[in-house]
Write a protein that binds this DNA or RNA. Structure first.
Length: 531
RNA sequence: GGCGGGGUAGCUCAGGCGGUAGAGCAAACGGCUCAUAAUCGUUGUGUCGCCGGUUCGAGUCCGGCCCCCGCUACCA
């Protein structure tokens, strides 16, 4: 992409995923949403930086590694290579970088960050006090404790009473930033989205903030605290920094200035607070710009419940992609769920959407148009010499769909962007049916040939725009459609087509070679592969 | 307990500034035959969570109640 030197890139991130376990649909959902946004911005001609990665420190990873009988670093390496990196291929993610919190570039920069805050007086030594389970050898959090007899609090794993212990560790003076955070939410309503999450966080911060304990000394799988080697940094405090360490914080100011601040941190709603309270407070303390927007999406529900391994609803993305393909995976989750709200997933619903909208809708439209150009014009796109009112309607709908889709992306209404394009597909199917080109084709009269040519051109030109508008969600199928329209040799690579121009009528030049290719979305085998 | 969101056709959800309910999918019927048994058209259906109130008239406003979910700080 030709971007002026000095242009700031559009920087979008997913959370870095905790390597405690294998990826499930929830992770893939976030990745795919971020990926669509990244691809869309690239197709606006913007320079884009799309980051994802893995979070590898902390007690849970250490315990998982222990349970597997290997060192934490070995455990992480294995999961990253066999699960987390491969799943990006599975869902067709186009990330520009992948950061691991165990990488040297991250560790060094994190240490530099905290040393700076320590030097500036934002960190002090204090005592952390909390419920501790002797059997687990770790501190517990209030919310996970179970109630025992006469008010005792029990460890959920061992069922035995917890003790209140304290340890010395370091605290970040987060309490000092409450007012500045509230001012941020006030002055930049777009900082936390959706609105409901913003309200929740405002009421949370209004209650006042406590200082945050940022180090642990009871285990060592973490980044060493530079001024006190007996401590490691608390995972969150290390993990959040990935967004700046990957961007070159503290070592590469030129690169950093072109990427930071992040335009969008996409997160699940369960970790919104870390991203919209703790994270900006850390950045404020360091004198670094805060990100522009933290968007919290909803959860995927299976059978009405949040997905979880223990309830056997932790579906692996590959299970679905193997059956439906990566394009359909991406399309379904971004189209069927209002982005920001929780959404239900079921094989049945996904099958219904695939069949109706992709196979019978878009796929069949592409197929019938290509077949007719082949049959009636030997595969050469004819000139539309009889453009009339019916064609104007299609041209207008196309322009409208392109406008709506582009505007929807800026509101993170990904489902609306897809709905706009899907409606266009429907309109073109209606148009083709009403114009009855197969009947017009029965006559060799010049006026009928002109009409036939115009009908097929119109449908093909609409498909051209549909390929452009759907490229960010379904890069494979859109690319196949692009090829089938003969657009590549005429207009250049699909990825180079600007979404802003997608709605301009008449781009696909007559003379293009239209080929009927394999079905874009083949009919599915009877039984879902994974069920 | 407090705060917030939600309970609407078989399914997923819109509407929610009051005027006897909508979309998509699924279903039924009809048209068409270029196409992936596809496409197009037509059609139905709903005690709009429960009870009461205001009103000529209430999913839509008020009061009460029932159920579900989220937040109420250090699991990522």
């Amino acid at each position: 992409m030709a971007a002026e030197a000095g242009d700031k890139a559009f920087y979008v991130t997913t959370p870095i995923y905790y390597v405690n376990d294998a990826p499930h649909l929830g992770h893939a959902y976030t990745t795919v949403a971020a990926d669509m946004i990244a691809r869309w911005h690239r197709q606006r001609g913007e320079r884009v930086w799309f980051l994802t990665g893995t979070d590898e420190h902390g007690q849970k990873v250490m315990r998982s590694a222990e349970a597997a009988g290997v060192e934490p670093s070995e455990w992480s390496d294995r999961l990253v290579e066999t699960e987390w990196k491969p799943v990006l291929e599975v869902v067709d993610a186009s990330n520009d970088d992948f950061i691991r919190t165990t990488e040297q570039r991250h560790v060094e920069r994190v240490q530099r960050f905290w040393q700076a805050l320590y030097d500036a007086g934002h960190v002090y030594e204090g005592r952390y006090e909390g419920p501790y389970c002797v059997s687990c050898e770790e501190f517990k959090i209030e919310s996970e404790l179970e109630d025992g007899q006469d008010g005792e609090k029990l460890c959920p794993i061992h069922g035995r009473p917890v003790e209140i212990l304290s340890e010395t560790n370091y605290f970040f003076r987060m309490s000092a930033f409450a007012d500045r955070l509230l001012a941020l939410y006030e002055e930049h309503p777009e900082f936390v989205q959706p609105e409901s999450m913003r309200n929740e966080l405002i009421s949370f911060v209004r209650q006042g903030l406590q200082d945050l304990s940022i180090t642990r000394s009871t285990f060592d799988w973490g980044i060493p605290v530079p001024w006190d080697p007996d401590h490691v940094l608390y995972v969150w405090i290390d993990a959040l920094l990935n967004y700046v360490t990957a961007a070159g914080y503290s070592t590469n100011p030129e690169a950093f200035a072109q990427i930071w601040p992040a335009d969008l941190h996409l997160v699940g709603k369960d970790i919104a607070r870390f991203h919209a309270v703790i994270w900006p407070a850390m950045l404020m303390a360091a004198g670094i710009d805060v990100p522009r927007t933290v968007f919290a999406h909803g959860w995927l529900l299976v059978g009405g419940q949040k997905m979880s391994k223990t309830k056997l609803t932790g579906i692996h993305p590959r299970d679905i992609v193997d059956h439906f393909g990566s394009d359909a995976f991406r399309y379904y989750f971004l189209r069927a769920i209002q982005f920001g709200s929780d959404g239900s997933f079921s094989w049945e619903h996904m099958t219904a959407v695939y069949t109706s909208e992709l196979a019978n809708g878009l796929g069949n439209l592409a197929s019938r148009v290509a077949a007719m150009v082949g049959r009636y014009f030997d595969g050469t796109l004819p000139k539309p010499t009889d453009h009339g009112p019916a064609e104007d309607v299609i041209a207008e709908k196309l322009a409208d769909a392109a406008r709506r889709a582009d505007a929807a992306i800026d509101r993170f209404a990904l489902h609306e962007a897809l709905a706009a394009t899907n409606e266009l597909v429907g309109a073109v199917n209606v148009y083709v049916t009403e114009q009855e080109p197969w009947k017009v084709a029965k006559s060799d009269a010049d006026s009928d040939r002109a009409r036939l040519a115009t009908i097929l051109y119109t449908a093909a030109e609409a498909l051209r725009a549909i390929a452009v508008l759907h490229n960010a969600v379904m890069p494979k199928a859109s690319g196949a459609l692009w090829e089938s329209l003969g657009a590549a040799e005429q207009l250049g690579a699909l990825a180079e087509q600007r979404v802003q121009d997608a709605g301009t009528w008449g781009q696909l030049p007559p003379g293009a070679t239209v080929t009927k290719t394999a079905a874009l979305f083949p009919r599915l085998p009877e039984e879902p592969a994974g069920s």
